[in-house]
Write a protein that binds this DNA or RNA. Sequence first.
DNA 1: CATGCTCTTG
Length: 592
Amino acid sequence: MPPLRDEMVAVRRYAELLSRHRGGADARPVARIQAALVTSGLLRRSAELHDALIRALAGSGTPHAALPLYAHLIRAGLLPTPHTLPSFLKSLALSPAVPGARRLALAVHAHAVRLGLTGFLLVNNALIRVHAGLLGRLPDAHLLLRASAAVDASTFNTLITAHARAGRVADARSLFDEMPERNAVSWSAMVNGYVQAGDGREALGVFSQMQAQGVRPDDTVLVGVLAACAQLGALEQGKWVHGYLRANNIRITVFLGTALVDMYAKCGEVQLGMEVFEGMKDKNVLAWTTMIKGLAMHGRGSDSLTLFSQMESSGVKPDDIAFIGALCACTHTGLVDKGRELFNSMVSNYGIKPKIEHYGCMVDLLARNGLLSEARDMVEKMPMKPDALIWGALMAGCRFHKNVELAEYVIKHWIELEPDKSGAYVLLGNIYSASGRHASAREIRHLMREKGVEKTPGCSNVEIKGVIHQFIVGDLSHPRIKDILTKWYEIDSRIRLEEGYMPDKKEVLLDIEEEEMEGALSRHSEKLAIAFALISTDDYMPIRIVKNLRVCQDCHHVTKLISKIYGREIIVRDRTRFHLFKDGTCSCKDYW
DNA sequence: CATGCTCTTG
């Protein structure tokens, strides 16, 4: 029986109503409409309504709700349309945890082929995306791409993103380079790809290329640029983005605001981050967490925890990562009891099951504060198998409190998990040297050499007039290296003469022979970076250093002395936190 | 249909 005229009008009306709910996070209105359509029997007779429902749900907070609709469509004897498939495939891609999602994706692909729908650009793109993403089959995605009759920028963009997510930036880049037409999305996919790969320099390089070609930056690419600045500690460039946003009246979305807060915090200007944060209208958990973590990194533990309570009372529910931020604040400030309290509150007030990361924070907090047996207890009793990070946290505590016995217990487990990484060996060696067991330290050094264990080289960045200069330990390739070393010798003699400095050899890299130690120490990357900053900036200008590892005792001590003698503020971001050196003291109060 | 923010540790 052909549909009645009235029925066609009703279908139109409902489809129109559903299209108004597209992209709404709250899927409840859609669910109510769906229920009405099922009761009236209308849904069973209309492919168009299936289509409208799937589209409304695909962009909602519950994309998986669209999944049963496909089977419903087929059972009702109706056929998917070229409009249905892209949204449905998107719902599938967003529901990787739903059992059978992958099988369903393959079935949809088969239908699309049989019904001759693969010629539609949007269908084809969605299929390529699902192969690259949900199905994890990049080679198949490539085959589909090569076999496609028509392809547009979004097809290449999809693959660039997929490659970058899979950690293959080089492949993403070659796709990007061979694109005949790039749009703003292509550029941001590439910038963000490099950011994800941890290559902030290359990300900024791509961005300047984008500007050179006159492509107008959109807010997505600017989020990526800010993240790159945060990684590198590139404050000047980050400020430029902020200025650009203001000059062009670009609305600070939650994404942009959060990225700005993170950039300022990670570039040592947590106060500027706070101003942006306070100006943000809608703050989600992410925004709060970023600010909480930012304050924690600067050693402002109690401010950070105050903010955490403010978040709770403002009605934003902390998630597992927000708790990591708060626990971090406790770790950087030594607030053991508060940390225990938070851990318990997470479980009993919010019903969040602690993940290994939370145990990591707790082990770190306990071990660092000398509660080594309680920390060991936690490691032994935690419900999951300890990973390398857990052992690392416990080992760091052993070093801090010179506990050789526990360190020897830890190393056995740790090396089992990471036999060819240097961290475990270096720390154990440090503990041996620090407690005067030089023969054991030498043994470790031989063991490392025998096994060919790799060390992560120390590396420091310093931004001078908007340009990032990089110094790697022992690397003398900087064009002004002669001047830098001359300056270093001057610094060295001044701190010895005026402050009675003597090098502290306890934490020197292990594969360096004793007689070379002082030379190697003086070449730790941040020392070169500070010497360079002293000769390339005006007096009284603060110096900002970003380094990839933690600061060693000796460098920490030397930096304090330099800040006093040369009257400079020196802001050092190490792997996890900030140190503000001023007048011979450090904001971390020697606790790091 | 394609792009974006927070996440313990050495």
